[in-house]
Design a protein around this nucleic acid. Sequence first.
DNA 1: GTCTATAGAAGGATAGAC
DNA 2: GTCTATCCTTCTATAGAC
Lengths: 206, 206
Amino acid sequence: MAATAHFSTKDRILGAAEELFAQFGFTGTSLRQVTSRASVNIAAVNYHFGSKENLVNEVFRRRMDDMSAQRLAALKTALEQCPGELEPILAAFVEPALALAQDKHGGGAFVRVVARAYAEKNDSLRKFLSDHYGHVLREFAKAIAAAVPGLSKEELYWRLDFLAGALTYAMADFGLIKRPAGVTEAAHRERAARELILFAAAGFKS
Amino acid sequence: MAATAHFSTKDRILGAAEELFAQFGFTGTSLRQVTSRASVNIAAVNYHFGSKENLVNEVFRRRMDDMSAQRLAALKTALEQCPGELEPILAAFVEPALALAQDKHGGGAFVRVVARAYAEKNDSLRKFLSDHYGHVLREFAKAIAAAVPGLSKEELYWRLDFLAGALTYAMADFGLIKRPAGVTEAAHRERAARELILFAAAGFKS
DNA sequence: GTCTATAGAAGGATAGAC
DNA sequence: GTCTATCCTTCTATAGAC
């Protein structure tokens, strides 16, 4: 917490790992690549993180803690200010993720790391995410259930999965939609959020 | 094409590789795992495929060609038998992917291979996909545009992206929904297809 | 076409000096 | 906390017998 622009060894490792994981995947990235990009010694990873697996988890924790807090805060606001409305709940879920994706301070790569996480079938990571962030999804499930009465629990969870998939895919820029030259990235993301909320709201209500 | 239940060494390698790639990823799978599962010698891979990278390409192409053909055939049938209806078009897009996902004959995990391929920020792979399979997406875009009049081209492509994302995510089994013990895999997949088509149809029509 | 054997490179992880 | 040096494993790929 010092008033310095200096990044610690630990932070440099996390940043380098995030970028490389996004580009090459978890198994496709060696610790040697990570430490080389971070300009630290190969031994530093095991000193600070203990193992490669734990480094993967920490890369996630760094971004997810923040995003989860933002989602829950936005959800609280939505429920207070627009009780019974679905769209504000979906916005509380979607917008923090998209904000992270356009964050110049490194968040962009993280989005692709998330996409990696489900493309690779990393069970230990999956368990880590479920253990640490499952409660966020459950909060949203509760809120959506209240806003869309008559939806069975099963249908609700299916649709939450679809929303998460569409969000991840859109964030990672996988699809057909490329940002036009005349549009700022912020405007593009806002458009994405608007379109996705509209699409998903209709889906949840169907 | 002989009338024999015998699989060649080459086919056994392809089948084993596909299953393992889906489970552990391209980089997470070693050729030793592949040849061990295929009950062939380690040297056979390089004899038949030249390199690991080329094996990856062949695995991918084999399934992708097949799925694309099925999608287009199903689309043709849908347009002939249910002109003007959206749901059959979506089914033609979703079901071949799901059918492949439950195919025990090696296709079982292919969809995760596709998910992985998308997650690669690999431009040459992307170009390959776009060059070889882009026309399939364009056919579906045309059909959906006709079934949902008044949708702008931009909105249409956004929603196609959301559909592809939701499909990929659901296929990768990453989400909340786990197949219950008492439900067969086939029934689970059918449920997924039904839910997704319903969800997406509402989204496209919104 | 399929095997054994192995070359040669790269991986994760650790010991121990500083 | 950070370094050098190294251990041990695993990898892809190939050479050469059959």
